[in-house]
Amino acid sequence: MKNFGYTIQRDQSIDIDQNDRRIVNYLLSLEPSFNLCLGCGSCTGTCTAGHFVDFNIRRVHTLLRRGESKQLKTEMKKCMFCGKCQLVCPRGVNLRNLIITIQRAIEQIG
């Protein structure tokens, strides 16, 4: 192929039509409180891990809902399971179970 000195940019939008939403459906079946998030960011605000590394559980959660799970494996390893997120959540989302379930989903779906 020829090289003209510039490149073709790939479409960066979230394509819900193309994305794999199996993980989110799996999570919803095992942890229905996943549905209750209102995206307020309390969890990320208090997250122990998030204060030291680039880890945004609110963002990971939202990405998952859209079927964006590319960096999920490395992201999930950042969680320390302290449970503060669950304490502050105004909707009572069971975040620890959520993270465990996500890890299980990664193992199963790959």
């Binding site: 960066q12 939008s13 979230i14 394509d15 819900i16 039509d17 995206g39 609110r58 963002r59 939202t62 990405l63 859209r66 964006e68």
Partner: peptide, 15 residues
Amino acid sequence: IKTEDTLTGHPLKMT
């Protein structure tokens, strides 16, 4: 439809 998913900070499209 096209929108921005502000929570992920990405543009989003869907049918």
